[in-house]
């Protein structure tokens, strides 16, 4: 569904991406992880077609992204990022309706089908009650749900998420990601998400691509990518990994530096996260 092949990108003299390749299949979620400045967001923007790769190609449904007209692309691919809000007092309903923009024809207004989709999406994310509220009066978590609803109103086949949970409280983090995963499964969505939180990445992504210095440092299932060795080589700190008590995927704990006064605490022996 999404194919990234040997993509290079530089801003001036600074090479951000140096030959990245991966694919995201329909119904699956790929997590892009890596340290700050690794080029994850740039990569996402290349897939979304708002940046052009210097070399290599990004294909959506087998066609290079650059070959789509924006409207065509927007009917296939949606992006959820942080801070995608207007400074103006649009209502929740109107904001979600903006997701129908790629389908609207000039002169022909909103159709009953558009309304139907928007109302359904609002119900699914649980915002039907506040549909006529002003977006700027909602909480940060609810606003992110509005943004998610908008991307869903686009009826995309590919969904890109750029750190969708940053600044959200725990409940909303889980809500947003659960909704994404439900849609991904039910509608065969190909999901590519940039996540800062490696634990959430392990839980919600079928495959992880660890990017470091503009290259793919590791990729595969969570258990293959999230190992103390790989993480130390990329992040410069050696975390402790344990399997999630319910889902079994690796979850990570950072380990603070041992200071002399910490000596009297008996360090607990922890099993390194094993293969499932």
């Amino acid at each position: 569904m999404v194919e990234v092949r040997e993509v290079w990108k530089a801003f001036g003299p600074r090479a951000v991406l140096r030959g990245i390749s991966f694919t995201a299949e329909a119904g699956g979620a790929v997590g892009l992880i890596g340290p700050n400045g690794a080029g994850k967001t740039t990569l996402l923007r290349l897939i979304a077609g708002v940046e052009r790769p210097d070399r290599g190609v990004v294909r959506v449904e087998g066609r290079p992204v650059g070959a789509f007209r924006r409207r065509e692309l927007a009917r296939r691919l949606a992006v959820l990022s942080q801070e995608a809000f207007t400074p103006f007092p649009f209502s929740v309903y109107d904001t979600v309706m903006m997701g129908r923009h790629p389908y609207l024809r000039p002169l022909r207004g909103i159709t009953p089908r558009d309304r139907e989709i928007v109302e359904r999406v609002l119900a699914e994310v649980g915002l039907a009650e506040v549909a006529s509220e002003r977006v700027d009066r909602l909480s940060g978590g609810q606003r992110q749900l509005v943004a998610l609803a908008r991307t869903m109103a686009q009826e995309p086949r590919v969904l890109l998420l750029d750190e969708p949970t940053t600044f959200l409280d725990l409940g909303h983090q889980v809500r947003v990601l659960d909704l994404v995963r439900r849609w991904q499964r039910e509608r065969g969505l190909a999901v590519v998400m940039v996540l800062h939180d490696l634990n959430l990445a392990a839980l919600y992504c079928d495959r992880l691509v660890l990017i470091h210095g503009g290259r793919v440092a590791a990729s595969g299932r969570a258990a293959e990518v999230l190992t103390p060795e790989v993480l130390e080589s990329v992040y410069g700190t050696r975390p402790v990994l344990v399997p999630h008590p319910v889902r079994g995927v690796p979850q990570l704990f950072v380990q603070p530096d041992q200071l002399p006064e910490d000596r009297n605490e008996t360090p607990r022996r922890v099993r390194s996260a094993g293969r499932e």
Binding site: R45, E72, A84, T86, M98
Partner: peptide
């Protein structure tokens, strides 16, 4: 919504 988001919306 912002220039990027507008581009994403076609």
């Amino acid at each position: 919504l912002g220039e990027d988001q507008a581009a994403y919306l076609g």
